[in-house]
Amino acid sequence: MRLISVTVELGGPYREEHGQWHMIRLPEGSTVRDALRRVGVEEELYIVVVRNRRQSSLGEALRDGDNLVAYPPVGGG
């Protein structure tokens, strides 16, 4: 099975819990959700996911070289 490489950055509390930067390899056809689970993020509701600098959904299929950023919409000041 062909593998794709995806970088994942976690922000806010996810960063504290699971680390900030992750470079992972996933089977082709994997989704944003698969990538986030791989790095330990199970949350599916209170989360903002950005794929290649655009807001994304968990079900979107990933491509080789994709960049993901995921964070709860916590906000600061």
């Binding site: 806010g12 600098r53 807001q55 964070y71 916590v74 906000g75 600061g76 000041g77």
Partner: peptide, 8 residues
């Protein structure tokens, strides 16, 4: 803004 927190 939110400092180093991601913001898109």
């Amino acid at each position: 803004g939110f400092g180093t927190l991601p913001d898109y």
